[in-house]
């Protein structure tokens, strides 16, 4: 794995003088390709500010942000939109789909902004949405989609320009448990099957299950890094004290769920050949997902 995004000594100060506030203070961290990094912390801890700095939306007061070896924090303002367009994919809590455009057009638009021809943009958008289980929803307006579907469209939009980094701000906050889990699995699949770096800012404890690494931000500073174990079946990172465990031959193994432990022990029904075949990098996640009514 290679370092995709690195920030060093990043500080962000808002305001001047007595009223100034340091939202982020001397933060340094890096994200590898294929890694899911979860930034957690209480409200007002500076998570969103840090995410904005990482995504070239906000210039740090001090420190550097390096993307694939390029110090993007030093780039002039006019050069940042193309960087955001091509190198970052954003996933928002409120989905932020354009209400006037269909799911397909929302995704294709981002490709069109890079100069891609409309027909090609639509083709790629269609492929992505199909991979994400939304083949039958491409013509729907956002208002006609469920929360989970909207977020999958947002993920497709974030992926269409094949960015290096996906930045997700509270991606499961507006979703129910089932849809939240689905989105988490999707984001992890994006990292693992496409080799993208995924940075998630969230309060959602469930996201710990898919994160390779969790950092805690409080008062604008990183506090404590938690070490995670990896589920040998699904590859998810799991905290030792929250995992389903199995002691075998003197070795302690950690699983994200009883299902994974059962699969590890060969207790699942049916041979592997009966499982759905993939047609795309993310297809295995969504072969069985049926469209939902809004």
């Amino acid at each position: 794995m290679t370092t995709t995004l690195a920030i060093r000594g990043v500080t962000k100060q808002f305001g001047h003088g007595a009223t100034s506030v340091e939202a982020v203070r001397g933060v340094g961290l890096s994200v590898e390709s294929g890694e899911v990094l979860l930034i957690m912390g209480p409200s007002g801890s500076g998570k969103s500010t840090l995410l904005s700095i990482m995504g070239a939306l906000l210039r740090p007061t001090a420190g550097t942000v390096t993307l694939n070896g390029v110090a993007i924090s030093q780039l002039p303002e006019r050069d940042l939109p193309p960087v955001r367009l091509r190198e970052f994919g954003f996933v928002f809590q409120d989905f932020n789909l354009l209400a006037a455009l269909s799911a397909l057009e929302n995704v294709a638009l981002v490709a069109e902004l890079t100069g891609t021809a409309r027909a090609e943009a639509l083709r790629r958008a269609g492929e992505l949405l199909t991979e994400l289980g939304l083949a039958e929803r491409v013509a729907f307006l956002p208002d006609q989609l469920s929360g989970g579907e909207k977020q999958r469209v947002a993920i497709a939009r974030a992926l269409i320009n094949d960015p290096s980094v996906i930045l997700a701000d509270e991606p499961t906050a507006n979703l129910d448990s089932s849809n939240g889990h689905e989105i988490m699995r999707t984001l992890r699949a994006v990292a693992k099957e496409r080799g993208r770096s995924v940075v998630i800012v969230s309060h959602d404890q469930r996201i710990r299950d898919i994160a390779d690494r969790v950092v805690w931000l409080e008062d604008g500073q990183l506090r404590d890094l938690m070490t995670m174990a990896v589920d040998p079946v699904c590859g998810m990172s799991v905290e030792h004290d929250r995992a389903v465990t199995l002691e075998q031959g003197g070795e302690l193994r950690f699983f994200c769920s009883r299902g994974c432990r059962a699969e590890f022990l060969g207790e699942l029904d049916g041979p592997a050949e009966t499982r759905p075949a993939r047609t795309g990098p993310l297809a295995s996640l969504f072969q069985a997902v049926r469209p939902k009514t809004p």
């Binding site: 954003f90 928002f92 409120d94 956002p142 208002d143």
Partner: peptide, 9 residues
């Protein structure tokens, strides 16, 4: 764009 409740979609 990161503010909550800005867009219903």
């Amino acid at each position: 764009a990161f503010r909550r409740g800005g867009a219903p979609a």
